[in-house]
Lab assay of single mutants.
Amino acid sequence: LVRYRTISKIPQITLNFVDLKGDPFLASPTSDREIIAPKIKERTHNVTEKVTQVLSLGADVLPEYKLQAPRIHRWTILHYSPFKAVWDWLILLLVIYTAVFTPYSAAFLLKETEEGPPATECGYACQPLAVVDLIVDIMFIVDILINFRTTYVNANEEVVSHPGRIAVHYFKGWFLIDMVAAIPFDLLIFGSGSEELIGLLKTARLLRLVRVARKLDRYSEYGAAVLFLLMCTFALIAHWLACIWYAIGNMEQPHMDSRIGWLHNLGDQIGKPYNSSGLGGPSIKDKYVTALYFTFSSLTSVGFGNVSPNTNSEKIFSICVMLIGSLMYASIFGNVSAIIQRLYSGTARYHTQMLRVREFIRFHQIPNPLRQRLEEYFQHAWSYTNGIDMNAVLKGFPECLQADICLHLNRSLLQHCKPFRGATKGCLRALAMKFKTTHAPPGDTLVHAGDLLTALYFISRGSIEILRGDVVVAILGKNDIFGEPLNLYARPGKSNGDVRALTYCDLHKIHR
C-alpha cells in the first residue's frame, strides 16, 4: 500500500512540481520508500527539464536528425535550378540546329562534286560548318556529364541527390541515346576521305529529338503553341524528305545512260545542264529549293507536275512521300480545326451564355430598361472574369491554397485601402477568403433606401454616388468604403439613402 501511494504521487509531482519531503505519510521509514524516492526525484528532475525545454521552444527539443539540413553532394545540380533551365534551352537550340543542318550536310555532301578544292585539302579548321559541328559534339558530351550530376524525382516524389543513384537512373534511361548522339564521328573518321560515311553517321544526332519531343509535351495545353509546333514538325519532315529526294537524284545521276532524272530535267529547265562528264548542272541553292518544293507539294497532295519522278527509285520514294503525307494530314492537320476551336472556345461560351440571357429575357418578357441593365451587367461581368467562376475553380483546392490565391487576387485593395494598413498577414488572409466580388454598370442602383444592410462594401474600381431623395450626399471612388460596420450592432440596419454607380464599378463586399 505504501508503495502504491508513493507511485500514485508521481503525476502530481510531474505537473505541480511538489516535493515529496513535505508529505508526512511518505516520510515513514520503510525500505521500499527509501529505494523508490531517489528514482522519483530523478524522474521528476528529468520531466521538469523536458517541460522547461518545451515551454522555452528551444531548438534542442527536436531530434538531432530533424535539425540537420538535407545534404547535397558537391557538384550536384538541382533539376529545378536556373542554371539547369538555361542549359536545357541551350541544348534545345543545338538539337534544332542539328535537326536542320545534319540531314542537309549528309545529303548535299554525298558524292558532291561542286567546283573547288576537296575538304581534305583545305583542312578541318577552315570549314565553318565542321567547326560548328565540333562545338555541338562537345556541348552534347558536356550535357552527358551534367546529367550524371543532376537530381531527379523518383516514384515516391522524392528528390534524389545521391550521385550513385543518379548515375544508375541515367544509365537506365537516356544515357545510350545521348551517348550515340554525342559521338564525334568527324574526329574519329577525319582524314579518311569518307565524307559520305561521316554525313550518314552524323544523322545519329537526330535521336535527341525524342527527348525534345517529350520536353515539349508540357506545352500541349496551349493551343497556339501546339499549332506552332505542328507546323514546325511538318516543315521539318518536309526538309528531311527534300534532303533524301536530292540524295536519290544525286546518286543516280552519274550512272544513268539517259538523262531522265529530276536533276537533269531541272538543269535543262533553268539552262544549267550537266555536261557529258557529269559536272556542271544547277547550283546547290536551286537543287535544295526545288527538292523542298517537290516534297511540300507531295505532302499537301497538290502535285503540280513541273517536278516529277521519272526513275524507279524516284517513283518509289514519291509513293512513300504520299503515304507520309496522308498520315500527316490525319495526325496534324486533322487537329488544326480542334485547336482553332479551342482557341476561340471563350468567344463561343460568351455567345452561348448571351443567347441564354436573351432567351430568358424573351421568355419572361423583361421590360426594355431592365433588359438593357441585365445585358450590360452580363457584358461587364464577362469582360472582368472571362466567364470563369472563381468560386467553382477554387473549390477543388485546399483552404490554405485558397487563402493564398484570394490574398493575391485582392492584393491591390488590401495594400491601398486604409482600414487594412497594419493588419497582420493572417488577418488579411482571413479577410480575403470572405470577400465576394460584384460588378455594376453605370446607372445601376446597388442599394435602395430602406434596404437591409448586411454587408460592408469596398470599391475596387469606378465611382458611385450616394443620394437622399434627389440630393447627392457624397461621391465615392476607388478604395472608399460604404455599408454597415460589421458586428457593431446586434441587428442589421437599414439604408438611409440610395447608392448608384456612376461608372463601371468593381466592388468587394463582406457579409455579416
Rank of each mutant, 00 (worst) to 15 (best):
E64V: 05
E64H: 09
E64F: 01
Q68C: 01
I72Q: 14
T76I: 13
I77F: 07
Y80E: 04
Y80S: 08
S81Y: 01
S81K: 14
K84Y: 04
W87F: 03
Y97N: 01
T98V: 10
F108W: 01
K111Q: 03
E112H: 14
E114A: 15
E114K: 14
A119V: 09
C122R: 01
G123H: 05
A125I: 15
Q127V: 06
L129C: 04
V131N: 01
V132K: 01
D133L: 01
M139G: 04
D143K: 01
I144N: 01
L145Y: 01
I146N: 01
N154W: 03
N154V: 11
A155W: 09
N156R: 09
S161I: 11
P163C: 05
R165I: 04
I166F: 01
A167Q: 01
V168C: 11
V168T: 09
D178Q: 01
M179T: 13
V180P: 08
A181Q: 04
A182T: 05
A182Y: 01
P184H: 01
K202L: 01
K202T: 01
A204D: 01
L206S: 05
L207F: 09
R208I: 04
L209H: 01
L209K: 01
V210L: 04
V210Q: 13
V210M: 09
A213F: 11
K215G: 04
L216C: 09
Y222K: 04
G223F: 04
A224L: 14
L230I: 10
F234Q: 13
F234A: 03
A235G: 11
Y246S: 01
I248K: 01
Q253W: 06
M256K: 15
D257G: 14
I260A: 03
L263V: 03
N265E: 15
L266P: 01
G267V: 03
D268E: 14
I270P: 01
P273N: 03
L279R: 09
G281R: 01
G281C: 01
Y288L: 01
Y288C: 01
T290S: 01
T290W: 01
Y293A: 01
S298I: 15
S298E: 01
L299N: 01
G305A: 14
G305R: 02
P309V: 01
N312L: 01
N312R: 01
V321K: 01
M322R: 03
M322W: 01
S326R: 03
S326C: 05
S326I: 03
M328H: 01
S331E: 01
N335F: 04
A338Q: 06
A338K: 08
I340A: 12
Q341I: 04
Y344G: 10
S345E: 10
T352H: 13
V357G: 01
F360A: 03
I361H: 01
R371L: 02
L374A: 06
Y377E: 15
Y377P: 01
A381G: 10
W382M: 07
S383W: 03
N386F: 06
N386W: 04
L394M: 09
K395T: 14
G396K: 03
L401Y: 08
A403T: 05
H408K: 01
L414K: 01
L414R: 03
Q415P: 04
P419Y: 15
R421E: 12
G426P: 08
L428I: 06
L428Q: 13
K434C: 05
T437M: 09
T437Y: 12
P442F: 01
P442I: 04
D444V: 07
V447M: 12
H448D: 02
A449L: 07
